[in-house]
């Protein structure tokens, strides 16, 4: 039954993936001017422009252009960077591990701290901890990632000298960027967990659990938590998206050699093949994360599993 569910989710995913590729395909082709000239870059020779024109199939019908585009995608051919003349896949692969490491560390921090804070705040509603943590969460929600990064750098690297400011050489280099990138999501996850917890605690089955004589700790951990976490899982999934986007800014602040920085460099240099490749990759990753979330959802909620 769970297998069927996963297959159904995969089938829903496909049109979205196709849609994403179509949008990117169209966007690259509505760049003002001649796409092949723009993509070849300002210093390209006439031959290079022609080469790109044939490579993209721009001389053919738009529909067959799209099929060529998809065909190239499946062969892992994302074109060539106009800046470095390297294959786009190579450029991306060199940077991807760094971004994955950063994103993973951030979502881990955000999830663990966010869920914990949310639970305690929800269970102890209107306590000092509740007010304080929700105030901090609101701050975290409102803080620009890049500014938070700079302020943390100012305090921990420049004033206290505890952590390195820029670069990606060691574990120590990961700490500040991961906190910076995770702060926003942590705030959102904490708020969501709290309100979900508050909602669940009022429900009838919690009263049933109490009427059985369960200790409050068990009522929360066994009866409330799993139910309360169901909507939180969705939020965490959506947050990975925000995180992947926020990585762009964080990587710039901390000179972290990841995909996000590659994207900004590519945008500034009008290196369209790279822009197209990175956007496709990140969107695909996000779609897969959501698939994982859907599966996790089914694990948490038997009502979905046995549909």
């Amino acid at each position: 039954m769970t297998g069927q569910y996963i297959i159904r989710r995969l089938l829903i995913m496909l049109p979205v993936l196709l849609g994403v590729s179509l949008i990117i395909f169209i966007m690259v082709r509505i760049i003002p001017g001649d796409p092949s000239m723009v993509m070849a870059g300002p210093h390209a020779t006439k031959d290079q422009v022609e080469q790109i024109r044939t490579q993209l199939g721009l001389d053919r019908h738009p529909v067959s252009q799209y099929f060529i585009f998809i065909g190239n995608l499946f062969r892992g051919d994302l074109g060539t960077s106009t800046r470095t003349s390297l294959p786009v896949t190579k450029e991306i692969m060199a940077r991807l591990p760094n971004t994955l490491l950063l994103a993973l560390a951030s979502i881990l921090i955000a999830t663990v701290l966010g869920v914990l804070t949310g639970i305690i705040a929800g269970v102890k509603q209107n306590s000092k901890f509740d007010y304080l943590s929700m105030l901090v969460a609101l701050f975290g929600l409102s803080m620009p990632v890049f500014w938070l990064g700079l302020m943390l750098m100012l305090l921990f690297s420049i004033h206290l000298g505890w952590l390195p400011a820029v670069g990606a050489e060691s574990f120590k280099h990961l700490i500040l960027p991961a906190i910076t990138l995770g702060a926003n999501s942590m705030a959102i996850i904490a708020r969501m967990t709290r309100s979900s917890m508050l909602e669940v605690i009022r429900l009838d089955y919690i009263r049933t659990a109490r009427a059985k004589g369960l200790k409050e700790k068990l009522v929360i951990s066994r009866h409330a938590l799993k139910n309360a976490l169901i909507p939180v899982v969705t939020v965490i999934g959506l947050q990975t998206g925000t995180l992947l986007g926020g990585a762009v800014l964080t990587e710039i602040v901390f000179a972290w050699p990841g995909v996000g920085r590659l994207l900004v460099e590519a945008i500034l240099a009008r290196d369209y093949p790279v822009v197209q490749g990175v956007v496709l990759l990140v969107a695909t990753m996000f779609i897969f994360v959501n698939l994982v979330v859907d599966i996790l959802y089914a694990y948490l909620d038997p009502r979905i599993r046995y549909q």
Binding site: P15, V16, L17, G19, V20, L22, I23, I24, M27, V28, I30, I31, P32, T240, G241, T242, L243, L244, G245, G246, V248, L249, L263, V264, A266, I267, R270, Y272, V275, V279, V282, A283, F286, I287
Partner: peptide
């Protein structure tokens, strides 16, 4: 709804970034 789904598949600021890349 499929169109909306597709747009939402571009996480966070990414869609805006892509559009900037194209529009200048």
């Amino acid at each position: 709804q499929r169109f909306v789904d597709t747009m939402l598949a571009f996480p966070g600021i990414l869609l805006a970034l892509t559009l900037i890349a194209m529009l200048g």
